[in-house]
Amino acid sequence: MRYERPTTLKAAAQMLAKEKGQAFILAGGTDLLVRLRTGFIEPDLIVDIKSINGSKTIQKTATGFKIGSAVSGAELGEHAALKKAWPGVVEAANLIGSKQVQGRCTMTGNLCNASPAADSVPALVAAAAKVVIVGPKGKRTVAAEEIPVGPGKTSLKKGEIIESIVLPKRPPKSGDAYLRFIPRTEMDIAVVGVGVSLTLDGKGVVTKARVALGAVAPTVRLVPAAAKALIGTKMDKAALDALAAACSAACSPIDDKRGTRDFRIKVAGVLARRAAVIARKRAGGK
């Protein structure tokens, strides 16, 4: 196994493209090192991207925030402006692992690990985050939900690297929230995760909404029907019931060591309702 630490994205992409064996990108390493240690993977090449210019920075731009792919959860949590604009995304990222893991783990890694239960992903998808990819054929931008295509599988092609995640600028009176269910209070993998992002008008009516679910299907699931249940309403009981029902209906989970199918379906609805209420409050609603 070789370890490389390129300083430019181009060099990194070239190394990855050239490698004939198994190659992996290392940013936070909180998933990669576990898989390496348990013998799950036997890489020939590891490319550490933390020395690449911009990989460790959060940039506030005219159109939103650009988050370098090696920015750690702790750094996200310390960025006041980002936290103010996208509290749901930051809290989701900050739920990944312990304080120790927060010092290393990245949202990009969480996305590329392509676990159905990844905490930051439903929040990113609800936030309509975009992902900037650099590869042998140049740059492309895709929606966050297009990256994971199945458990452990991504749409990234050989030689491609995520440069950054872009969170859009938000309209006024917007709010987002992420809630997950875990059996303990910390140190667990989501049994269900729900991200909600919404915008209100002056009267408190929801004008825009995105709802995404984690750990209830092979990949993160954007649920338009759930968004529809909120849009045009003041989120009264009927709307929240419809939201919960839409979320439960969108689940196609499995029974596994972390939870049963029935449990996930029921709790997806419960959490969606709770997350929506938090998002509304953050948007300045009651």
Binding site: G29, V101, R104
Partner: peptide
């Protein structure tokens, strides 16, 4: 200065 698990960091890093 940032807390981390040393089992999740490569020596080379």
């Amino acid at each position: 200065g940032r807390l981390t698990c040393s089992c999740l960091v490569l020596g080379a890093e």
